[in-house]
């Protein structure tokens, strides 16, 4: 559905998008993740046909975004981060304008406008002036505007920025629903956003695509696997415990530090979830154990590492206990 081949975009001396390539299939929901200034918006603008690429090419639904820009624009619904809407229009007038721009017939507009307003939950605001809407409502009207022509591809740039937590949750739910019907690309620098909505993630850093895959794939391939956390009584020699644990298969490394109440905390970095093996080992060695838990490397750790360009060893385990 969407193909990007070596997309590059310069703004004078600044390289905003650096040789980015990817493919997105029909019906996929993909998240563009990256810190501010990573090149997310620029990439989306190129795909939406607003910005030309300095080098490389991209196509949507088989149409080149530069050479067949108008055809591409007929297939997409694009919502820019600033949610551009004409403030002097009423909500339904704004949508009517969008429908006319997309060449929708009068009958289609009459049918679709209440339909999309209902879908985003602002049907009761259809006679309200856009300028009088709150940020959250504007965002919804923006989404309705993007959805109106029933596009095959929905491109949403930071769709939840500036919203309160409840509004975010509602927009996320809406995007999840939309994802079951069409290809959706969302950009965000907010991780929980992407984690909640997008099965597939593309991480951009300094304009370059540094990771592409499902969340699990990314964490498994680029992350640090898992961490098993143990608290063992200090009566067992710390050095010996570490040495014995290190001999277990799939263990990558061990860190330990003095805990409270006469216990020592061990963080066992491993390729797999080794709770059973470590538990068995502790039983055989008659260790007095207070805690045995598992921490999975999260997308957040991976994101921070890739964004900051950290090495694998510098990755710290997430404080979140997932299981």
């Amino acid at each position: 559905m969407i193909t990007a081949n070596h997309l590059t975009r310069r703004f004078g001396p600044v390289l905003a998008v650096d040789d980015v390539s990817f493919e997105i299939g029909r019906g996929e929901v993909v998240g563009f993740l990256g810190p501010n200034g990573a090149g997310k918006t620029t990439t989306l603008r190129i795909l939406a046909g607003f910005l030309p690429a300095t080098a490389g090419s991209a196509s949507i639904a088989g149409h080149d975004v530069q050479r067949e820009s108008l055809e591409v624009r007929r297939h997409i619904g694009y919502l820019a981060e600033s949610v551009p809407l004409y403030g002097e229009h009423r909500v339904e007038e704004m949508l009517d304008f969008q429908g006319r721009l997309h060449g929708m017939s009068s009958a289609d507009r009459k049918r679709r406008i209440p339909e999309v307003l209902e879908r985003v939950g602002v049907l009761d605001r259809r006679r309200q002036l856009v300028a009088h809407l709150s940020r959250g409502l504007r965002q919804r009207v923006g989404l309705a505007t993007a959805l109106l022509p029933d596009p095959d591809v929905l491109i949403l740039d930071e769709p939840t920025s500036g919203l309160d937590p409840i509004q975010r949750m509602e927009v996320r739910k809406l995007i999840q629903d939309l994802g079951s019907e069409r290809t959706v690309i969302i950009s965000s620098h907010i991780l929980p956003e992407i984690e909640a909505v997008c099965p597939r993630v593309l991480i951009l850093s300094h304009g370059a695509l540094v990771a592409d895959g499902t969340q699990d794939e990314l964490v498994a391939s680029l992350g640090q696997g898992t961490h098993v956390r143990l608290e063992i009584s200090a009566e067992h020699d710390r050095g010996t415990v570490e040495a014995e644990l290190a001999r277990l298969a799939h263990v990558l490394g061990i860190e330990s530090r003095a805990g409270t109440d006469g216990y020592i905390e061990y963080d066992v970095r491993c390729e797999l979830d080794l709770r059973e093996a470590i538990g068995r080992h502790a039983q055989e060695q008659h260790y007095r154990i207070r805690e045995l838990s598992w921490r999975k490397a999260s997308l957040e750790e991976l994101f921070v590492r890739l964004a900051l360009g950290l090495q694998k060893d510098e990755l710290q385990p997430s404080p979140e206990v997932t299981q």
């Binding site: 108008l70 551009p84 721009l101 997309h102």
Partner: peptide, 14 residues
Amino acid sequence: RNGLLEFLLTSPVT
């Protein structure tokens, strides 16, 4: 400046 041109130029209009 306010992004409306981006809205127009990403619509199927020359």
